[in-house]
Structure formats: structure tokens, C-alpha cells
Simulated assay, not measured.
Amino acid sequence: MNYDVLKQEIIAYSREIGIDKIGFASAAPFLELKDRLVRQQELNYASGFEEKDIEKRVEPAKIFDQPRSIIAIALAYPSKMKEVVKGKRGERRGVFCRASWGEDYHTVLRDRLSQLEAFISSKVPEARFRSMVDTGELVDRAVAERAGIGWSGKNCSIITPDFGSYVYLGEMITNLPFEPDEPIEERCGTCTKCIDACPTGALVQGGQLNSSRCIAFLTQTKDFMPEEFRDHLGNRLYGCDTCQAVCPENKGMDFHFHEEMEPSSEEVKPLLEPLLQIGNKKFKERFGYMSGSWRGKKPIQRNAIIALAHFKETSALPSLIQVLKEDVRPVMRGTAAWAIAKIGGLEAKEALLKAKEKETDPEVRKEIDQGLASLNQ
């Protein structure tokens, strides 16, 4: 088998099926990465969503029998909506980050990887594969960097010369020995715009992220959001685009190559108030196809409450008061109490005083007491 010829055939086929970038890397252990991952754990900077076993994250042989190479792919996604909807007083809207626009990217990339596997198998029946997208053991960015897809930017994203950092990544370990591609030279230079713009200082330094402070991570948690971060959330419902939006390499980057990635403006910028009472079935019907729905409705609803406080949306007070009075989830009641106090006014104060008479959950009572204290200042 001439693997150089096969490599070129794979590259040509990848373009036919809508893969925007493809690269080939060795399956050697990611030794430098291991030190960084250990350090992240020691500092408690990891998000907790990652594979816990660092050995599996850095050694392909731990998860695949006799790996010979890794094929990395990237698909470019849009950064602008074709149809824009705007919120206004009385009709405030939240926003899902760009990486949640359109169909769940895990589904899209797995489809491309499956097609690639089938093509290679038709050429080499004894070929074996292990494909993964985001939730696998390997670190997508490390594989993409080694395969020459792009360089690892200071914003902790892979930045490609062609599409900036607006790309989804996936990879495939295989037992076939492809010639590896050359990594791309890093081009961030002295630029620190992403670090400077990070709303919560989560980018500790170039290429190092404290996930526990990252808004993209915080929007996915299900408990009370620590108060120090609430005012930084703005109207974000899921994810955060700031460190990508300010990157000079992303200037003018907007690609609409894949129909399934096109956003529905009403879904990615939904009205906030209706989200407070949305049921599970309706939530799944409306948002279930998006990657931003993977944690369920609870984080989205909590974030919608915080967003209404961000806008100081007085017209939403009756809805927030209803949540405070009726929602069975302490996180929702407590967050609503905080939001009601933020919006302020006599109606807000009366609602908090009434809620205090009946509330038994200690965390919710704490939010109510803090809210009343701020209103009495």
C-alpha cells in the first residue's frame, strides 16, 4: 500500500464531503501537554468536564491498540447571523455563543468522520479507527496543532490561517502509518487582546485558562452562580465569544459553508421571559438539536434570570416574582431573589419580604436577606 497516494486521496475526498481542513499527525505521546495538564489539575483550573485520566489524554496507545497516526479535521462555522433579531425594552433577549449555532457540532463532525472512515475502509479493509469529537480522551487542540490545522492561540483556541478560530475540531486515531504534516508557526506574537478582554480574568496568561472563572464554563453549571460573576454574564445564556471576537485573526472571518450550522435567530437569541416557565418537553423540542442544550434547561433558565437583572427589566418583575414564589428549585428561587433586588423598587422589596416569610431553604433565604439589605441601603 502506497500511503502517500492514499493520503492524497483522503485529502481530496475530505473536500468532497465538506471537511474544510484536514491534517495528519503522529500518534506519539503528547509529552509536553502532560506537564501542562498536571499543572492545571494542581491549580484547580480544570473544568471537570474533561477525561479524568491524564494518561489517556496524552497517550493514544492507552485508548487504541497500536496507533500509527492521527487524522485531524476542522469545519468552519459562521460568526454572523444572516437574519438578526434585536431585543428591546419589554422584549429582552439572551444569546447562545456561536459554537452553539445550528445543529450540535458533535453530530455534524461525527458524520464527517464516519464518512471518512468508510472511505478509508473501502481502500484498506484492515484499517482500524477511533474517532472522537470534543468528548473523547484526547485533547482536540493538541492533535490539531500537531497536525498543522492551526496554532494554539493565547485564547486557548486553535487559530487557523484560513478561518481564524471559528472552527470545530475532530480527530481519528488509526493503525495506518501516514506521513505527518508540519505544525504551523504561532502568530499571536505580543498581542494580548484576548487576555485583556476576558470579562472575569479567566485567561491567566496566554494559553492558560482557569475554567472555574470562565464564563463559557460558568454558563454550563447547574448550581448557584457565584455572585462575583453574575454582573459579568450580561445576556449570555450559553458560552462566551469575547476572547474570539476581539482576536485580530478573526477579523472579517465569517463562513457559511454548512447549511446545518446556520443559526435560527429566534433560537440563538431567544426572548428571555418565556424561558422562565418553559417545560422540559418544549425545551427539548425547541433547543434540543443545539449543543448549548446538553446540560438541560436549568442552567439556561438560571442565566435568563441573571440576564433580566442585567437589563434591569422592570416589566419582568411579575415573572421573576412568580419564580421566587412557585419554582421548586432553590437555585431558581434564590437567583430570582437576587435579580428582583437588582431591578429594585417597591414591588421588588414587597416581594422579597413576602418570600422571606415562607422560604425555608438556607441559600435562598441568604439571597433574599442580601437582596433586602441592598434595597435598604
Rank of each mutant, 00 (worst) to 15 (best):
E266S: 15
D223R: 13
S264Y: 04
P270V: 09
Q301W: 01
Y238W: 15
I300K: 10
K297Q: 13
A245E: 00
P270E: 13
V268E: 04
C214R: 05
E262F: 11
R230P: 02
I215F: 03
K298L: 15
M253D: 00
A245Q: 12
S265A: 15
W294F: 11
N235Y: 14
L276R: 05
L275N: 02
R236V: 02
T219L: 05
L276Y: 05
L233P: 00
H258P: 06
D223F: 04
E313M: 08
D241E: 11
T219G: 08
L317F: 07
G296C: 09
E266M: 14
K281T: 14
P318W: 13
S291E: 09
K269V: 10
G292V: 09
G288K: 12
E313Y: 10
D223H: 06
Q244N: 12
S264K: 15
T221A: 05
Q220Y: 00
L272W: 04
E259T: 14
S319L: 13
A245D: 08
S293R: 03
E262I: 04
F217A: 00
P263D: 04
A307G: 01
E260F: 02
D231A: 12
D254G: 02
H258G: 11
P226A: 03
F217M: 00
E227W: 12
H232Q: 10
G292K: 09
D241P: 03
N280M: 06
I306L: 06
T221C: 10
G252Y: 15
D241G: 13
P226Y: 07
T314G: 04
F229W: 11
S319H: 13
R302E: 03
K281C: 09
M225A: 04
E267H: 12
S291D: 03
K269N: 08
L308Q: 05
T221G: 04
G292S: 13
K251A: 12
I215C: 03
E227G: 03
P248M: 09
L272D: 05
L320V: 09
P226W: 06
